[in-house]
Design a protein around this nucleic acid. Structure first.
Length: 419
RNA sequence: GGCGGGUUGCCCGAGCGGCCAAUGGGAGCGGACUGUAAAUCCGCCGCGCAAGCUACGUAGGUUCGAAUCCUUCACCCGCCA
């Protein structure tokens, strides 16, 4: 068994661990059972969760037993955020999200074969437990003095808004999960984002008190760009893993647009590429940045991992066609339709104003904004800049009589389809 | 329960009767711009072509005129019980 810990560390996936040498030893000694939880706070997982899935994937490939937990109960409570109280999700919403997340996780891990990953829902052991049992059996092991020192809780206690008892209790629930998985499955490692460290160690402490056993924890670093902004936001929206929330095209584009100074780091985190391969891409990026080969490799690999080979190839073709040097009006019909098929868009008729078309396809929020974009020189039809805010779409604007390519700024594209 | 302070646009935060669609900062958007990168500079940033409309926690009121004054309710913070 190769040293998986070194591998994770080299890839930049390790922020903190409980006892590094003990964890290294455990991983080297044989299969360890590891779990990571995902709360169903939304109908999809997002970029941040992808890091956790990648960690589990590496561990499973290294021969360790992987448990993927969906937080059917913790999702009902809500992990305290440092900023403000969450709006509680209904039980129906949460149950629906649990179902969606179960499906999303499947492509990342192997659920068949000799070392199948396990999928569990913490509602299964939390729901049957009475409040009295919870307080007596679990609560007794927690000191409030320690609980209020956890980062997220401390921040909220110091804030104007305070923190509800509901969210305050969150760490007990997550601790209970680890304890349960330790007892039932012999789970001795929990992974999660560094923002989860407090909750993760709550479980480590609980197992120590309740069972007298020492277990491990590993957190991954928060991924930020050069200006200190978290990765995973595109135009203010989260980058989701579900195709119906972030289109594969937008997903691919997000990674293609990663700044040069971060691309190597993200290649290490998200792709399976070797050290040599990534070094080579890094050098290429420094010497010939205009080729954008590192970004292309990153975008292709992640899109393939999340959306599969077929969709990844389709969005890549689309991107090449739409951003290539060639004139879009000479694209053959098949390429044009494939490429624009991945774009957001809407149906319009001949004679629709460019302003209305920009609004219809969602490139701008209002007709005022559309006029503004045109006035600023930031709008084009088939890559020809529009200068007249009153311009209408003519039949000849619809390439092959089918679709007009609308663009706002350099990289926001949409298709106006003749309907 | 009592007293005091607060609630402003995506976020922070000024404004304290007309000059307020509301100063400033951040975020975001467009252009210069090359590489679908970064940095920098300039511009934009409620809806509406416009007249105008809707917005400063909620609901009323005073006034020719309110984000600004009064009252109701809700929520938050502090001190006291």
């Amino acid at each position: 068994m190769s040293d998986i810990f070194d591998e994770l560390q080299w890839r930049g996936l390790v922020a903190q661990t409980t006892d590094e040498s003990a964890l290294r030893q455990a991983l080297a000694d044989g299969p360890v059972t590891v779990y990571c939880g995902f709360d169903p706070t939304a109908p999809s997982l997002h970029f941040g969760n992808l890091v956790q899935l990648v960690v589990l994937r590496h561990l499973q490939r290294a021969g360790h037993r992987v448990i993927c937990l969906v937080g059917g109960s913790t999702g009902l409570i809500g992990d305290p955020r440092p900023t403000s109280e969450r709006v509680l999700k209904t039980k129906e919403q949460t149950a629906h999200n649990v179902g969606r997340i179960r499906d999303l996780v499947r492509p990342f891990l192997d659920f068949e074969g000799d070392n199948p990953a396990l999928l569990v829902d913490n509602l299964d052991w939390t729901a049957p437990m009475s409040a009295i049992d919870f307080l007596r059996d679990i609560g007794t092991h927690f000191r409030v003095n320690q609980m209020i020192r956890k980062d997220a809780v401390a921040t909220r206690l110091a804030s104007e808004q305070g923190i509800s008892y509901t969210e305050f209790s969150y760490q007990l629930l997550q601790g209970l999960d680890y304890l349960e998985l330790f007892r039932v499955h012999g789970c001795t490692l929990q992974t999660g984002g560094s923002d989860q460290w407090g909750n993760i160690t709550a479980g480590v402490d609980l197992i120590h008190r309740a069972e007298g056993a020492s277990v491990h924890a590993l957190s991954t670093p928060l991924l930020e760009d050069s200006s200190g902004t978290k990765f995973g936001k595109s135009e203010g929206n989260a980058v989701w893993l579900s195709a119906d929330m972030t289109s594969p095209y937008a997903f691919y584009q997000y990674f293609l647009n990663i700044e040069d100074s971060s691309v190597v780091r993200l290649l290490k985190v998200f792709t399976d590429r070797s050290r040599d391969d990534i070094d080579a891409l890094g050098r290429l990026s420094e010497e010939k940045p205009f080729l954008r080969d590192a970004q292309k490799a990153l975008a292709t690999d992640i899109t393939t991992l999340v959306h599969g080979t077929t969709l990844a190839a389709a969005v890549q073709t689309a991107s090449d066609a739409l951003f290539g040097k060639g004139d879009v009006s000479v694209l053959d019909p098949a390429t044009l339709l494939d490429a624009t098929g991945e774009l957001p868009g809407a149906q319009v008729v001949v004679g629709t104003s460019v302003v209305d078309a920009l609004v219809a396809v969602g490139l701008v929020d209002s007709r005022n904004a559309a006029r503004r974009a045109i006035t600023e020189g930031g709008a084009s039809v088939n890559n020809v800049r529009v200068t007249d805010p009153e311009q209408l779409l003519a039949l000849t604007d619809f390439l092959h009589g089918r679709v007009a390519l609308l663009r706002r700024g350099r990289k926001n594209l949409a298709a106006a389809r003749l309907g």
